[in-house]
Design a protein around this nucleic acid. Sequence first.
DNA 1: GCTGACATATTGTCGGACAATATGTCAATT
DNA 2: AATTGACATATTGTCCGACAATATGTCAGC
Lengths: 243, 243
Amino acid sequence: MPTSVSFDRLAHQPAYKVVSEKIRNAIVSGEIAAGDLLPTETDLAEQFGVTRSTVREAIRLLEHGGILGRAGRKRLVVTLPGMEAVGRSVSSAMLMHQVTYEELWQVAMGLEPLAGKLACLSATDEEKQLLADNLALTEQVMDNHDALLKVEIEFHNLVAEATHNNALLLARAPLNELFYPAWGAIIRALSPGERILVAHQHVYDAICAGDQDKAEEWMEKHMRDFRRGIEMGNLGFDQPVQG
Amino acid sequence: MPTSVSFDRLAHQPAYKVVSEKIRNAIVSGEIAAGDLLPTETDLAEQFGVTRSTVREAIRLLEHGGILGRAGRKRLVVTLPGMEAVGRSVSSAMLMHQVTYEELWQVAMGLEPLAGKLACLSATDEEKQLLADNLALTEQVMDNHDALLKVEIEFHNLVAEATHNNALLLARAPLNELFYPAWGAIIRALSPGERILVAHQHVYDAICAGDQDKAEEWMEKHMRDFRRGIEMGNLGFDQPVQG
DNA sequence: GCTGACATATTGTCGGACAATATGTCAATT
DNA sequence: AATTGACATATTGTCCGACAATATGTCAGC
C-alpha cells in the first residue's frame, strides 16, 4: 500500500518575519545591547537584501513588544521593554479573554503579599523613604478620590519595586492597568481612605522592621478589603474586567 | 521676567500608529469579535484614507501581540492572544532584564501553589482524568530525561488549566518557557524522577479530594525541590536565566 | 461527485518617489 | 566665545504603482 511519502508542509516564512527574527535574536542573545543604535532602515534593507518596506514591517513587529523604540523621533534604538509595554500587551490579552475581577483578584492574592514579603528582605533606605513619602501624601489627599487612587496604586508599585525582583515586576505589570478602574470605582463608592491608610501603614512598618510575615499578612488583609469593596459596592465581582 | 510661555511638545503620531490603535480599540472594545475576518488590506487602506503600506505596518504592530493572525495563510482574522504569544513576549522581556533563576523561582512560588489550591475548587472530572493520565505516563517514562521533562511541564499546565482562571494562566505563561531549560538541566543532572512523581501524586490526590491546603503545601514542596535541584546541580541559582 | 481549467482576489515583495524633519557644518553676528 | 542663521545632508513617514505567488470561486466535462 504505497500511500506515497508524506511531506511536511513546507513553512515558507514571509521575509519580514525572518528579518524580524534575525534582529530579535541579535538583541536577545546580547549581540546588540539595550541602548545601542540600529543601522538605518536603508542600511538594514541592503544588509538583508530586501526592500525598505519589508524592513519596516519587520521593525513594527518588534516595536510593539517594546524591544525597539525611537530615540527622539529618529534613529532606532534597542530598548529594554518597560513594565508599561509588557503590562499593556498582557492586559489587553486579559481583556480579550474576558478575565473577571475574581480571577484577577486571585492572581493579585498570589503576587501582592509575596511582594510585601520580599520587600522586607531587599528594600533600601531610599525606597523606604519613598514609601514614607507616599504615606504622608496619602494622609493629605485622603478625601480626594482621584489623588487617593493615584497614591494607592503608587504604593503598591513602590513595594513591588523594593523587591528588586524584575520577574515579579513583569508578572504583576498587567495588574496595575486592570485594577486601576476597579480601585477607582471602589474609592468613589466607599471612600475607604482610612482603611487603606491603616493597611499601608502596617505594611510599611513591617518592611522597615524586616518582618516578612507581618508584611505578607497585612498585604493580604489589604487585598481582602479590596475584594469586600467590590462586593459591597455591587461592582460585579464575577463580571469581566472593563478596559 | 518673561521667560516666554512654555508649550507642550505637540505629539504628531505617525499614521500607522493611529491606524493600529483604531483597529486595536475596535477589537478590545468588542466591536469586532475574535474569529471575525477583517477587511482586506486594500479595503482598510481606502477606509482609513492611507496607502496599503501604511496599513500593513499597522497590522504588523498588532500581529506580534497575537491579537491578529492569519487564517490559513490569507485573510486577516481577529485572534484571542494565546498563552504562547503572551508567554513569548513576556519571557523575552524577562530575558532582556536579566532575570535570575532565583527571581523567577520566587514568582513561581507565588503562582504554582496558588494554582494547586484553586484547582481543588474547579477541576472537572475530565481534567482530573487528564492529570491521572499524565501521572501514569510519568511513571512509565521516569528514566527518559526528555520525556520526563515534557510530562513534568505538562502536569503543571494541566493543574493551571484546571483552575479555569485565565488571568492566572496568562500570568504564569512566561514561566513555562523559561523554566523549561532549567528543569531539563536538573533532570539530566539529578534524575529526580521519583521525587517528582511523589509530589505530583500528592497534588493530584489533593485536587481529587478537594483538599486545598494539601494541594498548596505539596505544590510548594515540589517547587522547593526545584530550588534544591538548581542549587545541588550547581546550575547558578543567582545567574540570569538562559534563553 | 470529482476533476481540471480558468478567472479573480489577496498577499508578499519590490522599486522609486517626495515632503517633513533632524543632524551637521560653517560663516556671520553679538 | 557663544549664539544665530543659512545651507547641505540624512533619515523617516508616507505615497504610488507594479508584479509574482498563491487562495478562492466558478464552470464545464467526465
